[in-house]
Design a protein around this nucleic acid. Structure first.
Length: 362
DNA sequence: AAAGCGGGGTT
DNA sequence: AACCCAGCTTT
């Protein structure tokens, strides 16, 4: 037996081995009971950069609220964002809505059914296009997600930095070769991701019970913990948010965020961002538009504080509650509107804002 | 090619 | 505190 047939055996056996492993170990997940492309699409968007355990309840609520793509198309974007609240990466919800309307209105409700066509849709990149094409339509195209990078890097001993374009091409090409030997492309794609999620885990992979143990370059050389190689992320940026929470009776002044920034189209309060933390309200430079509101109101002496840690930013927030008399209530700065508690409950809001409302007003 | 975008779980 | 998650879009 020469090295070439060894290598060949490793390629041909890889997919069938994982497919057999999957038969025995797969979890029972709701989106595995359907071939409806709409539901598979919905599940895949929810699961982008999101763990199954976190995304699952959102999937259940979305299917309940919008059983078909037509139902989703009829809804307002705000309703989707409200249901998406707390899941993060809100552009996913906005793109979901846009694409639902496009499919319902321009494609007559007919879901695009090939990898190439799916890739043109908003919010669908190479991973998601491959996932829908294989799961819903049986197309033989490989998914390459974080799990797949890890499994392939280890089994084939690939030490390229997976954040680079060159490495992405390497892995995509390898994945393409491997799926050729799968009995069922959809099953195989599920299998390799499931394998990465519960067997070939980032930390402490279960190598002792691994069906690929004797083919795994990383195991055979003791390099499991060093693969895959991934460049370090940029340090988190510190930001200071100073919120003026205008109140009139039981109503609060809120607005949808419009900056190309975090939380686009989510609702918060009148915001003054500063480069340094602000200790007292008098230290804050208040724009003319809201000066009189602050002066005629009755601001609390000390603000409530809040923090939110995102993967790329750390936000320290202070909230000054300011009671606005009836005589001033029509003088809100541009964009702000009064909302009752019931209305506020239906607005999509960042976790930071929801936490403040909960803490302050129950 | 690099940066920006959320939030939560795990170690 | 660091890492990671069924990634995509914009610059």
């Amino acid at each position: 037996m020469n090295w070439q047939s060894d290598a060949n055996e490793k390629f041909t056996a890889f997919a069938p081995t994982l497919e057999r492993w999957y038969q025995r170990h797969k979890r029972d997940l709701p989106w595995r009971h359907t071939r409806d492309p709409y539901r598979i699409w919905l599940s895949e968007i929810i699961l982008q950069q999101t763990r199954v355990a976190q995304g699952r309840p959102y999937y259940e609520r979305f299917v309940e609220a919008f059983p078909t793509v037509a139902d989703m198309a009829r809804a307002e974007e705000r309703e989707l964002l409200r249901l998406w609240q707390g899941l993060g990466y809100y552009s996913r919800a906005r793109n979901l809505h846009q694409t639902a309307r496009y499919i319902a209105d321009d494609l007559g409700g007919q879901f695009p059914d090939t990898y190439t066509k799916l890739l043109k849709l908003k919010g669908i990149g190479v991973y998601t296009a491959a996932a829908i094409a294989s799961f819903a339509f049986g197309e033989r195209v490989p998914v390459v997600d974080g799990n797949v990078y890890r499994v392939l890097a280890r089994v084939f001993g690939i030490a390229e930095d997976i954040t680079t374009t060159g490495a992405r091409k390497t892995f995509a090409a390898l994945a393409m070769r491997l799926i050729a030997f799968a009995e069922d492309p959809a099953e195989y794609n599920q299998a390799i991701m499931e394998f990465g999620a519960i067997q070939c885990t980032p930390v402490s992979p279960d190598c002792l019970l691994c069906p690929l143990q004797q083919q795994c370059r990383a195991f055979l050389t003791g390099q499991q913990h060093k693969l895959p190689v991934k460049a370090k992320k940029a340090p988190v940026k510190q930001r200071f948010f100073n919120y003026l929470v205008f109140r009139n009776g039981n109503q609060l002044a809120m607005r949808a965020r419009t900056a190309k920034d975090i939380w686009l189209q989510l609702y918060d309060f009148y915001l003054i961002e500063t480069d340094e933390p602000t200790e007292a309200l008098r230290d804050l430079v208040v724009p003319t538009a809201s000066e009189s509101l602050v002066q005629t109101g009755a601001p609390a002496r000390f603000p409530e504080t809040g923090q939110q840690l995102l993967s790329h930013q750390r936000i320290d927030a202070k909230f000054w509650l300011i009671d606005v008399p009836d005589t001033q209530k029509n003088g809100l700065p541009e964009g702000l509107q009064w909302y009752t508690p019931e209305e506020i409950g239906r607005l999509p809001k960042p976790v930071l804002i929801t936490a403040y409302l909960q803490q302050k007003f129950g």
